[in-house]
Nucleic acid binder design. Structure first.
Lengths: 260, 260
DNA sequence: CTTATCAAG
DNA sequence: CTTGATAAG
């Protein structure tokens, strides 16, 4: 059994202040994927950022306080890959991959497109290049669990106000179509939907207004898996009892073991 | 009887959050001089920044969130002067003068010199030019109350750790000599010292460390008056019961009336 | 350590 | 609205 958690911390130091590292050991996770660390490695020298029992890997953005991913792994990976060979994936530390025996776990932070047309164009370009990468991964003799803040909702059920958000980044028709392609053509599976078919649960609530209080959320974070793992998903839960950031942790249990 | 209060708010909006404008009306002051408003006029449109019963004057720095002075006056001044004709006094909104019948009250924010040698040089230049201005004022047929964060301690009694601060901005020999000149040659009087001869009271405590808790302070704020007002000082107090900023308000009572 | 601004989400 | 960087004190 493998327990894999993914969470966008919106600043790993801020999440730490809110008790994230008190909560984490209690989860007994095998792999923890983090997005938006918003910190450089030299700002994370404090032992709290290297929890006991885990091998910790960080991938920073060049720009301070921006983006960044991490993977904490109980088993030492055979290899850790932090480069896709193209920017801004590399220069913004948006990708981190831990390779185990026959399995890889990826922590990905997809660009947001909400700030302007220019950043949406950047997101669209990222989607295009990353889809190519995902296709390449499908050809490997290896299974993948891609833990990400995808910054896209697939269907109407995935966000509270789908009608009013059809022209907003994260629920644009071409973004949804990108996920259609990912699932229907490239063959990946959204592990959350495998378990919770008709459940309108969200993983992100804006900090503005009363989004959290009114549960005006979006399901932006999920673990996408290769087809052979489709019958291995034991549970898929969103942790909302505490709030470490504007995103909630995704906790998935799989019927396989992670071997280094 | 005239009650004149001066205080460096270290951000008038922050001071407001800490209850400054709840405290102020209870003081029944005739004139209130403020330094370090750190806000532009258009950021102070809320009525709290225009307390009932006062004519309010603000002088901003060009740079947002930096410096800035204010005067609140119960009696409407005959004239309000916000320019000394030179920078950075004008461009940083460091000077504001309210003219009444035979008396002027000034709100002044002296530059700090603690950040670098370059800012100390700027402070020194300001001291030089401002001394000229103060000499000019002495020639007027008018009394002056200069309410300021002077950013200088005069004597050893004026700061907790005078020995270790002899090479630090605010207690440099030439800064202290500048005050010697102001008092001994130009003839101004520090109204606080007139009342509290040997009292080691401070008006500013660093936010760093435990300065406030340990009363490691500096007397940087005081009301400097022209000689003819020397026998008019009724009381001079530092208000420490509440904390609106890193500086404490100076409350002085004078045996004269402010007439518009 | 605290103010405030700014970029980004 | 919130994180984090930066400037300034």
């Amino acid at each position: 059994m493998a327990k894999i958690i993914t969470v966008n911390t919106n600043g790993i130091r801020a999440a730490a202040r809110k008790g994230f590292f008190d909560w984490l050991p209690k989860q007994d996770a095998d792999v923890v994927c983090i997005q938006e660390t918003k910190a450089q490695v030299d700002q994370l020298e404090d032992p709290v950022f290297h929890p006991q029992g885990y091998h910790c890997y960080y991938n920073d953005a060049i720009k301070k306080g921006y983006s960044g991913t991490a993977i904490y792994s109980r088993v030492k990976p055979r290899k850790v890959i932090s480069s896709l060979g193209w920017d801004p994936a590399d220069s913004e530390g948006r990708y981190l991959q831990a390779d185990y025996d026959g399995l890889s776990v990826i922590s990905l932070y997809m660009p947001s497109g909400s700030s302007s047309e220019a950043v949406q164009a950047k997101k669209d370009r990222f989607l295009e290049l990353f889809l190519d990468h995902l296709k390449v991964l499908r050809r490997k003799r290896r299974e993948f669990v891609i833990c990400a803040d995808w910054n896209i909702c697939h269907r109407e059920i995935d966000l509270r106000n789908w009608k009013s958000n059809q022209k907003n980044s994260g629920f644009l028709p071409h973004e949804r179509a990108w996920l259609d392609t990912l699932y229907d053509e490239v063959g990946y599976i959204d592990s959350f939907r495998l378990i919770n078919q008709d459940s309108d649960q969200y993983t992100w609530w804006s900090n503005r207004g009363q989004a959290w209080a009114n549960n005006v959320g979006w399901r932006l974070d999920y673990q996408v898996i290769t087809p052979k793992l489709g019958d291995k998903v034991l549970s898929a839960d969103i942790y909302k009892d505490e709030r470490f950031s504007d995103h909630a942790p995704q906790i998935m249990e799989y019927d396989f073991d992670i071997k280094g």
